[in-house]
Computed example of a mutant assay.
Amino acid sequence: MNWQVPFFDLVLGDEEKLAAIAVIESNWLTAGPRIAEFEAAFALSVGGGATAVALSSATAALHLALLGLDIGPGDEVILPSLTFVACANTIRSVGATPVFADVTSELDWNISVADVAAKITSRTRAVMIVHYAGYPCDMDAFVDLCQQHRLLLIEDCSHAVLGTWQGRALGTFGDAGCFSFFSNKNMTTGEGGMLITRQPALAERVRILRSHGITASTYQRFKGHAYGYDVAEAGFNYRMDEIRAAIGLVQMQKLPAFNAKRKELVERYRKLIAERLPEVRVPFADYQGEASYHIFPVLLPCDAERRNEVLRNMGQQGIQCSMHYRPIHTFTAYQDVVVEVPVCERIAGSILTLPLFPSLSDEQMDLVVDTLGRCL
């Protein structure tokens, strides 16, 4: 469909094209120098002594974070239900049990510190938090809670690339931080992800696990820096390729401007909705810190059936919207899980996510808000 306003729109230019062409002309496409350069640049951007490991996706990063921290059968990991299903899938994939926690409030959709604390048991090994929509969780509270109970902390920063909490980069508070460079993210490599950690041993293990458990890369062997290899443990093919790394290097340079523009757009959205649609509530509207503004979700004054009708009608009017998210525990694969997340269940059926991307125009924003008003 030819959308008047798509849900997201890629911002790619000649710089990305030239970077990709340069990789092709180099005749080396996998696990080479641009991967190392991308990792070094990303680690430098987050600071805090972190090491970065480029991967094929954020899902791969979450999976290897769990494996690298030796989380497995018999362990419980607490996570939000209001997030993408990859979080719970990776927990199950290592044999651990996902335990779903509630959101903080009807207008703060980050995972609740209080509910996490209430759900800690003798089997709890880790907490997996998600910085929803790019708004940081209360990292001081989560670090204190995990230290008090000797729990591991994994940060899903898929919405919050280069986001900060009180001046410190997200992803550097926990044992591991996981980032997504999927097409609709604030910066993109098409597919791709990154794991960061301040633990050198974990970083080294993830590097080995991402490439079948092999101790030396193909590029090292090609260059003569390694003449054989060992397989340290059963690993995976979770490598990023050179073309994506080259695009990522260019996108990183543009990211500060992208995020600044997203902030402007979110502030304008909030003003338009307050003026024209006061019955529509906007989460995080009073947030005072710095955010990455990945998506713009709103809370409609209706139930799930009516919300779904609004979503269809918006599409028929040429405006592509989405929902972030259907709670994980409502999917068939997770219906055997006992949950108690009353706030999440109260708001989930009313969530609608409006288009947001750096090149979104004022005219398009006006059209989105006015069309939403008509559909309501």
Results as ranks from 00 to 15, higher is better:
53 V>S: 01
368 V>D: 03
281 R>A: 13
269 Y>H: 04
342 P>L: 15
89 N>I: 08
20 A>L: 06
308 N>W: 04
195 L>S: 05
131 H>N: 12
161 V>H: 00
130 V>A: 13
351 I>S: 02
252 M>D: 10
183 S>N: 07
189 T>H: 02
72 G>M: 11
37 E>K: 08
83 T>C: 13
251 Q>L: 00
119 K>G: 08
337 V>M: 10
204 E>Q: 13
40 A>N: 13
108 D>S: 13
193 G>T: 04
291 A>F: 04
315 G>S: 09
16 E>W: 06
239 R>P: 00
254 K>M: 11
179 F>D: 02
116 V>P: 01
189 T>K: 00
140 D>M: 00
373 G>N: 09
374 R>L: 15
45 S>H: 04
78 I>N: 07
17 K>T: 13
151 L>Q: 09
226 A>S: 11
240 M>H: 06
205 R>A: 03
122 S>C: 05
164 T>Q: 10
270 R>E: 15
222 F>W: 09
308 N>D: 15
346 R>C: 01
65 A>Y: 02
237 N>L: 09
227 Y>P: 01
354 L>I: 13
139 M>P: 02
203 A>E: 11
148 Q>Y: 06
140 D>L: 00
237 N>D: 15
176 A>P: 02
272 L>F: 08
220 Q>A: 15
293 Y>R: 06
334 Y>N: 09
264 E>G: 00
123 R>D: 15
2 N>I: 12
339 V>G: 07
122 S>P: 03
124 T>I: 02
219 Y>A: 15
73 P>I: 13
261 K>V: 03
114 A>G: 04
172 T>C: 06
215 T>H: 07
362 D>R: 06
152 L>D: 01
54 A>L: 04
4 Q>D: 12
340 E>T: 12
229 Y>C: 08
4 Q>E: 12
362 D>Y: 03
218 T>Q: 14
158 S>Y: 05
299 L>V: 09
284 F>C: 04
355 P>M: 13
63 H>Q: 07
198 R>C: 13
92 R>G: 09
266 V>Y: 02
155 E>M: 10
1 M>D: 12
113 V>K: 06
77 V>D: 10
7 F>T: 06
108 D>P: 08
337 V>D: 10
182 F>Q: 11
60 A>K: 04
5 V>R: 02
183 S>Q: 11
31 A>M: 12
170 L>S: 00
210 R>K: 15
298 V>D: 09
90 T>E: 08
261 K>N: 09
309 E>A: 05
141 A>R: 06
296 F>S: 04
326 R>W: 01
83 T>I: 05
52 A>W: 08
308 N>I: 00
127 V>A: 06
178 C>W: 08
283 P>V: 03
299 L>R: 14
365 M>V: 05
138 D>P: 10
145 L>A: 09
63 H>G: 03
190 G>F: 02
140 D>C: 01
87 C>Y: 01
120 I>D: 05
323 M>N: 03
123 R>I: 00
103 V>P: 02
111 I>V: 14
332 T>C: 03
105 S>V: 03
301 P>V: 02
112 S>Y: 07
61 A>K: 05
163 G>I: 00
